[in-house]
Design a protein around this nucleic acid. Sequence first.
DNA 1: GGTATTCACTTGAACCTTCAAGCAATAACC
DNA 2: GGTTATTGCTTGAAGGTTCAAGTGAATACC
Lengths: 171, 171
Amino acid sequence: MSISSPSRTPAEPPDVAWLDPQEQRAWRAYLVGTTLLMERLDRELGETFDLSLSEYEILVRLSEAPENRMRMAVLASSLSHSRSRLTHTVKRMELRGLVVRSSCSDDGRGVEATLTEEGGSLLAAAAPLHVRGVRRLLVDLVGPADFAAVGRAFEQVSDALVAGHPDADIR
Amino acid sequence: MSISSPSRTPAEPPDVAWLDPQEQRAWRAYLVGTTLLMERLDRELGETFDLSLSEYEILVRLSEAPENRMRMAVLASSLSHSRSRLTHTVKRMELRGLVVRSSCSDDGRGVEATLTEEGGSLLAAAAPLHVRGVRRLLVDLVGPADFAAVGRAFEQVSDALVAGHPDADIR
DNA sequence: GGTATTCACTTGAACCTTCAAGCAATAACC
DNA sequence: GGTTATTGCTTGAAGGTTCAAGTGAATACC
């Protein structure tokens, strides 16, 4: 029984267009490649700086924000993480002294995360390794044309999916 | 031509080439897009068939194998999962009756996972939804040219990363 | 002004993955 | 043939994410 096989029987439901062998191959390459790439980048940061890829991304976002501070909800949605996930992650990072949390002055419900000196230093130390990895394992490896295509493709994917889900914790 | 590294501007730290804004944007689109896409496909399968994306992939691999059976190690590496992860996942799937495990006749250490009737039916039921999702959210959405580029890109990524890591559980 | 609803975030349990042993079976060595 | 190393898979605990429920502040309603 081969679900992916290109051979078709006339009895097949009309509204399901299977992937042809080329598409199949590309899809699987993307699945496996992404798995390996994320794992590798995560491991590089983890071994050297005891930092996961998502923690790194949090540091980056904060470092780019005015005054190095951001509302939790904004940070969460910019990373496409659930609020809950961000709460846990930021709590751990706060215990390590990489960020501090404080409640918003203008909205008592809101919480802002701020990059600490220590968090900034760690980011500065980790960034070269990470960027080198991204270049070596993706950007430079696949070349400008294909990398640009990857960018275009996933911008469309993001747009399509963000459109459907107007924020909520339901994610 | 320089043998060890491409030429760089003298002022920059010699071994760090940052991402330019375009590259940065593409990289983040890929990160966010992949997060959202995986989450969505996983959720679709989960809600309707109580099946995760990786469980689904296991069913697919088995369905394509001769006699619907595969050695655990082969299955693991074809999915780029750790052996340990596969053990746990397959154990859960066995409890649900989707697969059965049996030890290899020719190698007493080896274990083979076999797709059950029930597992096959579940796959057949789930496949249309999943394939539709992959098409709608990626393949058809981005068009043939860019999707082909994604395939090429991640085949290179996979090759580069698989080459480095000759299998082991160290993953 | 008081109640109800919504919003922003947190909490703790359940679940999955990773990590570091652990256990058999096989292969290698002498 | 008997010891040792390696291979193939499993196990249980640790760690992170998700899910559902919970807290407190702001807003809406009357």
